Amino acid sequence: MAIKVIREFGKRITYDPQGITKTWRGNNICKDRSTYKGFICAEVRSKTRVVGVKFNGFNFNGRNEKLTFDNFIEDLKDLVIFHVNSNNFTGNIPSQINKNPHFYELDLSNNKLTGTFPMSVLNATNLTFLDLRFNNIVGLVPPQVFKLDLDVLFLNNNMFDGQIPDNLGSTPVLYLTLANNKFTGPIPKSIGQASNTLLEVLFLNNQLSGCLPYEIGLLRKATVFDASKNSLTGPIPHSFGCLVRMEEMNLSYNQFYGPVPEMLCKLMNLDQLALKFNYFTQVGPECRKLITKGVLDVSMNCILDLPSQRTPAECSTFFSQHGSCPDEWSLNYIPCKINHSITQDISDRAPRSAMRPSPSYAALIEPP
């Protein structure tokens, strides 16, 4: 059955620079590894079956530069994974993928998918990995996507717009990347509900606005947070001192102002704190130690006694026009008990030889 489906699909491929489809011959699909390249077999219900498609980097294309998934992905009944990044697939994802109870990884990144969010994906309720980055998908992200039991959700480098759904915090994902889209409005306060799951979250290079919700400080397991290159404003909430595992934080190229919280600068795992191109006015002694160590970058702000700052005219213009945050009280609210055993003087901390790779930042790099 799988051989028949594969051969029919192969007829639609008119561009195959690596000659992959030439190996789709004979009947030894699961016996001879030199045949049927791009397919993975395994034992399922006591029989050998085709369980995976891995076309990463094959650069397939079809007639008139159209290559769809129709009568392919849904006809391979035992699929567990479907990885086809860096090809030229177009069209929609068949809704029948929800009929396979074992289907749990879908990677469609770096293709030519257009239109709005593929709602058929929401039917695949057993997915744990969803990667739609580097396509041309437009419109709103449906709230239902944050109800999927995913570990990884990469939606970056598309043209999604509108506000991020309010139920963002319902997601159980570990790695969330919404960067390089056209999202507007605030970061949802519900983000704090994902305190037991989110490890890395990237909002960078959108059009987000408003003040940071203190609920971000509830992300006690988060190691990476990047909301740079937006239009966010207000002071940094003191709750950020609760981010005890934070290693990299980037809030650069926004409109933040006020003092940089000393509690944030005392977090012992912090390797990078980028706050450049904002309107901060004060840094205390702990933050100054981070500057000396090269951990904190506060260039192009409004800190009078530091070099490489904005001009007095720029700062004066900003402070004569900026508004205040609607929930001023929340900026001083600390939703945790600061444990001094998990903070220490930066001068006592040994430098790390190498930072661990970040899956979320890696997702911002287009596959070759």
Rank of each mutant, 00 (worst) to 15 (best):
K4P: 10
V5N: 04
I6F: 00
R7Q: 12
R12I: 01
T23L: 13
N27W: 03
N28V: 07
N28R: 10
K37E: 04
F39W: 10
F39S: 09
C41F: 13
C41G: 09
R45T: 03
T48P: 11
V50T: 11
K54M: 11
G57C: 03
G57F: 01
G62K: 09
N64W: 02
E65A: 10
K66T: 14
T68L: 03
F69K: 10
F69L: 15
L79G: 08
N87W: 06
G91T: 05
G91M: 01
N92R: 15
I93N: 04
S95D: 03
K99S: 13
F103K: 07
E105A: 11
L106K: 05
L106G: 14
L106D: 08
K112A: 13
T114M: 08
S120W: 03
L122H: 14
L122N: 14
D131T: 07
R133I: 02
R133N: 06
L140F: 13
P143K: 07
F146R: 05
L150W: 01
L153E: 04
F154W: 13
F154M: 14
L155Q: 10
L155M: 08
L155W: 05
N156F: 02
N158G: 13
N158A: 04
M159R: 15
F160H: 06
G162Q: 01
P165F: 08
D166V: 12
N167S: 05
V173H: 03
V173D: 01
L174Q: 12
L174D: 08
Y175W: 15
L176A: 03
L176C: 08
T177E: 05
K182M: 11
K189C: 08
S190K: 07
S190H: 12
S190R: 11
I191H: 00
Q193K: 14
A194P: 14
F203R: 04
Q207P: 06
G210V: 15
P213V: 08
P213H: 01
I216P: 00
L218G: 14
F225R: 06
S228N: 03
K229L: 15
N230W: 02
N230I: 02
L232E: 00
G234K: 00
P237M: 10
H238R: 09
H238Q: 12
H238F: 15
L243E: 09
L243C: 03
V244E: 08
R245G: 02
M246S: 06
E248K: 11
Y253F: 10
F256R: 00
Y257W: 09
C265Y: 04
C265N: 07
L267R: 13
M268H: 01
Q272K: 11
Q272H: 02
A274L: 12
L275A: 02
F277K: 05
F277E: 07
T281S: 06
G284Y: 02
E286H: 11
E286K: 08
K293I: 04
V295H: 10
I303N: 13
L304K: 15
A313C: 13
C315D: 03
S316V: 07
T317D: 12
S320D: 04
S324I: 11
P326F: 00
P326K: 01
L331G: 00
N332V: 02
Y333G: 03
I334A: 00
I338W: 04
I342N: 09
I342T: 15
Q344P: 00
A350D: 15
R352L: 06
S353D: 07
A354Q: 12
P359H: 09
Y361E: 12
A362K: 09
A363T: 00
E366H: 07
P368Q: 02
